[in-house]
Amino acid sequence: MMVIPCPFCGPRNETEYTYGGQAHVAYPENPDALTDEQWAQFLFYRDNPRGSYAERWQHSAGCRKWFNAVRNTHTYEITHVYRLDQARPDGLPKAPLATKEVGA
């Protein structure tokens, strides 16, 4: 059981949260401009690193707010939590999907 520090409520048990997958995967600006393959890439493909991973969580049994967390997928240690309107902490590996210009 992880203890996850909600940026709004403080540390709470993992059972209060819902996982939301990889963070910083932007919804394409213009989906119609994408090829089927690019759209499928957005829909179905996510990174799966061993190590630091920026991901989304919702404090579903608490304040119900969504936020981002950086979790080490190997040790389960959560090193950062931040609001959706805050920038991703510096020095983290960039998720390829987030930087790939899917809509270009």
């Binding site: 819902t18 939301g20 119900r64 969504w66 959706l84």
Partner: peptide, 13 residues
């Protein structure tokens, strides 16, 4: 409700 909140908060704040 989860679905509506997710879009409201994460994509269209």
């Amino acid at each position: 409700l989860d679905w509506l909140e997710e879009w409201s908060q994460t994509e269209w704040p």
